[in-house]
């Protein structure tokens, strides 16, 4: 079919809605944030329109660099843990009878309905000394006395993985259901055990899906600011926590905006880098 160039404004009609959505929900808020990040902070007041770099200067320090580094590391770890857990799980799920699959998916969706606060509180209770899982281990005779597992890095990681896992499964599920089941069977007839075939056929065949899932969970985890507070010590607080502090408790919108812009840029940069490496790998 030959497409004709648009003749009148009406021909551009179908573009208006998506363009409007993009403008209203992305360009305007993000543009506002960039603008505010250059505004002058008034201590004891609010901020005044200006064009200053002081907000970015304050951010460029070893301290905030460390927090940013930790946030990225945490998000990457969460993404990797989620995919490592969700991939075999979702694969096995896709092999189950249809009815069981539906039950599992409904259960996973119900986890999504839990708020971050509830997840945080549930895990902080499970990890507590007084009412936590270590009490069960003590009763089973596996431990001498109950200990507190929270706050700790492990607790933060567990909470965040728990929160992101349903998303991971739901993103991987369609790809795994669509995957030709004979690929795995072929690998088996060619001498691969099922476990080996999982790694040398299924994983590489789904490389793009896995990469996309990793990026999605990474970005999802980067925005988390409640679970690190509830389950972690201050050294486990992410940049998002500090942004929230500045925006809500310090009323320092320019600095919060500068941190947020920086975080977005670093994230976009990392995603672009990942895609670039992925494309190179495909060519080779």
């Amino acid at each position: 079919m030959k497409r004709e160039a648009p003749q009148s404004i009406a021909d551009y009609g179908p573009l208006f809605f998506p363009a409007g959505m993009l403008l209203v929900f992305f360009v305007v808020p993000f543009g506002t944030m960039i603008a505010v990040s250059f505004f002058q902070r008034q201590q004891g007041g609010f901020y005044t329109p200006a064009f200053v770099f002081s907000n970015y200067e304050r951010f460029l320090s070893a301290f905030f660099g460390g927090v940013l580094g930790f946030s990225l590391m945490l998000a990457v770890t969460v993404a990797v843990c989620c995919v490592v857990l969700a991939l075999p799980f979702t694969y096995l799920l896709s092999k189950l009878p249809r009815r069981l699959q539906v039950i599992w998916l409904v259960a996973l969706l119900s986890v999504l309905s839990l708020s971050e606060v509830i997840i945080g509180f549930a895990w902080s209770t499970l990890f507590s000394r007084t009412a936590g899982i270590t009490n069960i281990l003590v009763q089973l005779g596996l431990m001498k006395q109950a200990v507190a597992l929270s706050p700790s890095f492990g607790a933060v990681l567990t909470g965040m993985v728990y929160q992101a896992l349903p998303y991971t499964v739901l993103v991987l599920y369609p790809a795994l259901v669509r995957l030709d089941p004979t690929l795995m069977e072929a690998a088996r007839t060619l001498g691969s055990s099922p476990v080996r075939a999982f790694f040398n056929v299924l994983v590489p065949a789904l490389r793009n899906t896995i990469m996309a899932t990793l990026i999605m969970v990474f970005i999802f985890a980067l925005g988390s600011y409640l679970l690190p507070q509830i389950l972690g010590r201050p050294q486990h607080w992410t940049l998002s926590v500090l942004i929230t502090d500045q925006a809500i408790y310090q009323s320092n919108m320019p600095f919060a905006a500068a941190m947020a812009v920086f975080l977005v840029l670093v994230t976009l940069g990392l995603v672009a880098l990942t895609l670039l490496i992925g494309r190179k790998g495909e060519k080779a």
Partner: peptide
């Protein structure tokens, strides 16, 4: 198990990787 049977199989879908 299949992977120890020493056979070659061609599938209807071909199942090329």
């Amino acid at each position: 198990p299949t992977h120890k049977r020493n056979l070659g199989m061609v599938f209807q879908s071909l199942a090329l990787f």
